[in-house]
Design a protein around this nucleic acid. Structure first.
Length: 492
RNA sequence: GGUCUCGUGGCCGAGCGGCUAGGCAGAGGUCUGCAAAACCUUCCACAGCGGUUCGAAUCCGCUCGAGACCUCCA
């Protein structure tokens, strides 16, 4: 590697050289979705971001264990009703049926975005004993107290003894006190900033388990603490999630881990920023929202046409994961064209041949190729890397035109091909949607035949026939491209 | 109200004190039977006002504006 990998650590608020706890291994935990509804597009952005991080770490040679949980229990609403229960009421289904339905939908969407599955995808409901054990450990250390069958985390005691609470989010307990609101069970808490780690279930509650304190369910911050510990150990390398989880979720997670075992769970905290729609946060109640499916079908007032999953993914990668990304129709159109141009260049790159002479462009290309790694090593900067890649696209086009102005040696061409294919395909996970099915499918064979016939017509200057074929294909959403060396085609 | 981000050319987005990414759109050109596509070249910036500095989009202060979190949320 040319340079060291640096990452921005939300905990210290600075970029740090990435040094894993155990050389060669990386443990990464990312907060997954709550499966009570269809995946939110913002979720997709977060998971696409961490997918690229996962893939890049693997590409660098680390053995990565990537944990992404499924939250299928335990989140409280203002009215104290369990989220899963609420979903079940709406759909007339068993809670687990709801969870299963949306988990499958989530997986499907992750596949559409061409992300890799995590190493382990633990479910909160499958780790109730671990969570109960953690509550016990917290209580044993004096940071938890029971009230009417529920157990709360004692933030004041914790803050006094450890001085830890609020570090990640930059919050102070005194301030939190002033923000107290009239929440259910507030009276049971000693301090407004205390939070539930075990909740006693109301009689109508469906998802509940036995515990030393009551029949109930775990507090919603607890699952991540318990599952990360179980699969990655008490201390691991990376903890990720959306920006909006910093507080209270991640802050409380740290408190629970420190409170139960005395150690900081993650060395590096990585947070992705929000995806905005037309400059504003997506919100269902305002109608300012768009689902991935709507994006792919074009069925939304916010967009003028359908966008392919890879175009959307490319759009996401053009922005750094720590910046807010504003989704607009215009920006998507720009991204779609950029994506197509990139894929076209990749296809050309495959067919490029090295010069026997000295590669006049060698130095320039070589430096740019190395630059991609420099970009990615800078906190996984996909936008910078794409910038560099597009400079290479121009070089590829020059070489592909076969002029005399540029030549490349076999060594540098090989490096260029390997790096670009690896980076775009294996690390970014951008698949080529425009290309025909490949593998000598019937479509490819047919298209070859049709284009041959059209070429014959063109040679005979039989323009009506030639144009009829072209227009006919166009109405089938197949575009014919006439180039110097014959015609090619692609799906629109 | 509190905590914190951010304001870059027509649009999206890099930039982390000197070497002025990149994509899309616009303009010019190449190719072409025509068209499309593709390709090449190119114009247009750093919210405002002060300050620090030999030098600032980059550092500091203020003003204006936007957004996130503080409550379920990626």
């Amino acid at each position: 590697m040319n340079h060291q990998l640096t990452v921005y650590n939300s905990l210290t608020r600075e970029k740090q050289v990435f040094t894993p706890i155990h050389e060669g291994f990386v443990g990464m935990y990312v907060c997954g979705p709550t499966v009570y509804n269809d995946v939110h597009l913002g979720n997709c952005r977060t998971f696409v971001s961490f997918d690229v991080i996962y893939r890049y770490l693997k590409h660098l040679g680390f053995k990565v264990r990537y944990i992404r949980n499924i939250t299928d229990v335990g989140h409280l609403l203002d009215d104290g009703e369990d989220r899963m229960l609420k979903g079940a009421k709406a759909d007339q289904l068993e809670p687990m049926e709801v969870a299963q339905k949306y988990t499958l939908g989530f997986h499907q969407m992750m596949q559409i975005f061409n992300t890799l599955p995590p190493s382990i995808e633990p479910r909160a409901t499958g780790h109730i004993p671990e969570q109960i054990e953690m509550v016990e450990a917290i209580m044993k250390n004096g940071y938890g107290y029971e009230a009417n069958g529920s157990v709360y985390f004692d933030t004041l005691a914790f803050a006094e003894k450890t001085g830890e609470y609020g570090k990640l989010s930059g919050r102070v307990i005194d301030e939190l006190m002033a923000e107290s609101r009239t929440l259910k069970n507030q009276d049971e808490k000693k301090h407004p900033s205390d939070f539930a780690i075990w909740m006693k279930a109301a009689p109508e509650h469906i998802m509940k388990w036995n515990s030393p304190w009551s029949v109930g369910f775990p507090g919603w911050h607890l699952e991540c603490s318990a599952m990360s510990t179980k699969y990655l150990g008490k201390e691991f390398d990376i903890h990720g999630g959306g920006n909006d989880l910093k507080f209270p979720h991640h802050e409380n997670e740290i408190a629970q881990n420190v409170g139960s075992c005395g150690c900081q769970p993650a060395k590096y905290w990585l947070h992705t920023n929000m995806l905005l729609l037309n400059g504003k946060k997506m919100s269902k109640s305002d109608g300012n929202t768009i689902s991935p499916t709507e994006l792919f079908t074009g069925d939304s007032v916010h967009i003028t046409k359908a966008y392919s999953p890879m175009a959307v993914k490319f759009f996401m990668l053009q922005c750094h994961y720590r910046s807010t990304l504003d989704l607009t129709d215009e920006a998507l159109q720009a991204a779609e064209k950029g994506y197509k141009r990139l894929m076209e260049a990749l296809r050309k790159l495959k067919k490029l041949e090295a010069s026997t002479a000295v590669g006049s462009m060698d130095t320039e290309i070589d430096a740019l190729v190395d630059g991609i790694y420099t970009d990615m090593n800078d906190d996984f900067s996909t936008p910078k890397a794409l910038g560099t890649i597009f400079e290479l696209v121009t070089k590829i086009n020059i070489l592909s035109d076969g002029g005399t102005e540029g030549q490349v040696s076999a060594a540098v061409l090989g490096k260029l091909q390997t790096t670009l294919n690896t980076m775009i395909g294996d690390v970014f996970g951008l698949a080529d949607e425009g290309e025909g099915d490949g593998q000598g499918s019937a479509v490819n064979g047919l298209m070859e035949l049709i284009l041959d016939l059209r070429q014959a017509a063109r040679t005979n200057k039989d323009w009506p026939t030639s144009d009829k074929i072209r227009d006919g294909l166009a109405s089938l959403k197949i575009q014919v491209k006439d180039g110097k060396e014959g015609s090619s085609w692609s799906f629109q």
